[in-house]
Design a protein around this nucleic acid. Structure first.
Lengths: 344, 344
DNA sequence: TGTTAGCACTCTTTTCTGATGAGTGCTAAT
DNA sequence: ATTAGCACTCATCAGAAAAGAGTGCTAACA
């Protein structure tokens, strides 16, 4: 059977209507809703075909139809009209340039959640390979050394090391130079044992500090490499009856709390080289088990310098795909501009 | 009317039973549940009295009784038996000493939520008056200066400052000395304008850096002063039908997401000088509006050096007060020991 | 005098029933 | 190919009846 133009129109009407109401859509509704001027009977026949083809489902005999995952997929891929109207201007809400990346991302997640009324998540931008830029040791107390580790992209980590015997300012300076000359510009797997042993030798009695610092560096880079994720609007999940069932809602809320679980979703996506950077996962397409009854839309964004992160929106399968995609796209542009403003 | 011993026993039995089941408790149940050897009729008379006194409520005629807030209050204040059995050993789960405070606190919140099956929150320990301990400026790039600010209690903040003209290593050293001699050991409101202008004068052409650094210091101390809060087990809210109603659940989940809303709860408490440091808020006693149908138990903990934080547990009014209090108390001890271990 | 058995009464909860209505699939007419 | 018509299905709703839990009150009892 072929999916002709009329069938497409009907399918589209079914989906549109279902997105709005969340209720199964009947033939009579469609017959009036569309400009096809067909009677409900004709629609019924067409809907029977569409069901056979797997685009729509009947929850039970004598209920209307609801879109299947396959139906949503077709809709998202080929039928969404991206109207220009009401492109949400998020910029105003982000005007106050945030110094801290963390604050910015939290705010984006929050604004997005308020705007869309779905649950949102955003991963902090990451450079592919994190290289060490600069190390600085300084004394805090007699037997405490502060190690400041700066990674490519101006990410800064601190670490306090305890030492047994006091260290003079002079040796501290020497150690600083030693560490920086050897390690700067290296990524974590470029620091090898040979290098470490050379450094230890040169450090003499302070070799233990060297190892501690190197551990700290490794730790810092590793920490930077696992995704920092911010979420917002978790409570929106309860807004949609099809997700608000305790079992499902609990799993979802948990996923949003244990942010690592969201990692797959945000990480994998960042790597896929889609042209627009926007991905839609419908129901079971989602790589995260607990979201098999939701849809997830993700968008990668760039904050310059190859720093890429991902934004995700989680809602019911009948989420307003048009609006979500539109909003994400506009957000991508706005974040891009934010970076450019920063540049100049 | 007097609350004699028998009435107390009956009240206790009603509460105990209600805590377990969440269902109104009838006279017959009590008559069998207790060792009073009284018939249900007698119990009924007593229960009528207890109701008159305001300790219990009838949801409707011909339902059993449920405890009122006043009833819970009496129970918590005078009737809880703290049995020794099954004191949850959380220590094992916290064995791996965490370097980072953040990780530790997140873990505590999580373990606590898993143990109690309630929602938990924990505020990071804070010293009352945050004093500046040490400042370190260093160059990251030609026109970028990294300012590391260490606050009493070894809290470290970083800040990158952009400067217009390059600064020599020498001037940087001078600035470092200048800043440290003037500012170390001061709290935010001890840094006054006079001091600043003296420093600016001494800094000569680099006076703009001085102001930037001072801003950064102020910002860092302020940031440290507003509570860092970690939460866990939000989804446990859905476990209790009396809270799982969409309206309430949504508000609660939101409160746990917008962690500032929890601030009042955790902050006020930290200041109250209760002997045990454990506080119970029942229903409308809670200072947070959205929790008027819950109970909240908070405990202050100390991590040495006057650094105090607060742990909070949020559950239904029929939460297992005994267990929660026991767990919190044991946690207080364990955190205390953790610090002592750290000390030596 | 305190305790208890008994009973009528109240109110919620559950179950069943029939009615309603939305929606379908099929057939026959256009 | 389209549509009107009709029998049929099934969820949902309203109401009634039944069941059950629990109460308050009274009268009897130790």
């Amino acid at each position: 059977m072929e999916l002709d133009d009329r069938k497409k129109k009907i399918l589209q009407a079914v989906i549109r209507n279902y997105l709005e109401t969340g209720e199964p859509v009947g033939s009579r509704t469609i017959s009036k809703y569309t400009d096809l001027n067909l009677s409900s009977a004709t629609i019924r026949n067409e809907m029977a075909d569409l069901e056979e083809m797997g685009y729509i489902l009947q929850p039970h005999t004598s209920a209307g139809r609801i879109p299947s995952d396959k139906g949503y997929r077709l809709y998202v891929d080929t039928m969404m009209e991206e109207k220009e109207r009401e492109v949400v201007e998020m910029k105003e809400m982000l005007v106050e340039r945030q110094d801290k990346m963390e604050t910015l991302l939290k705010q984006v997640a929050k604004v997005l959640a308020q705007n869309t009324r779905y649950a949102t998540m955003i991963s902090a931008p990451q450079a592919k390979r994190n290289k060490l830029k600069f190390i600085q040791l300084s004394r805090v107390e007699a037997n405490q050394i502060l190690a400041v580790i700066v990674i490519e992209g101006n990410v800064i980590k601190n670490n306090i090391l305890s030492v047994n015997d006091e260290i003079s300012d002079e040796t501290l300076l020497k150690l600083n130079i030693l560490l920086n000359t050897h390690l700067n510009g290296l990524s974590i797997d470029e620091i090898n044992l040979a290098m470490i042993s050379v450094m230890k030798q040169q450090a003499g009695i302070h070799s233990d500090i060297v190892s501690e610092v190197i551990d700290a560096v490794a730790e810092a880079i590793r920490a930077e490499e696992d995704l920092e994720i911010y979420t917002s609007g978790t409570n929106n999940i309860l807004r949609y009856p099809e997700l608000a069932d305790h079992q499902k809602a609990s799993e979802l809320i948990n996923a949003f709390e244990e942010k690592q679980l969201l990692g797959t979703l945000l990480q994998d996506n960042a790597e896929e080289g889609e042209n627009t950077g926007i991905q839609v996962y419908i129901g079971s397409e989602s790589p995260v088990q607990s979201m098999k009854d939701c849809s997830v839309v993700t968008a990668t964004y760039e904050l310059g310098g190859g720093m890429k992160g991902t934004i995700g929106i989680v809602g019911p399968k009948r989420m307003d795909y048009d609006k979500v995609v539109r909003t994400l796209r506009s957000l991508q542009v706005q974040l891009d501009e934010l970076y450019k403003d920063d540049e100049k």
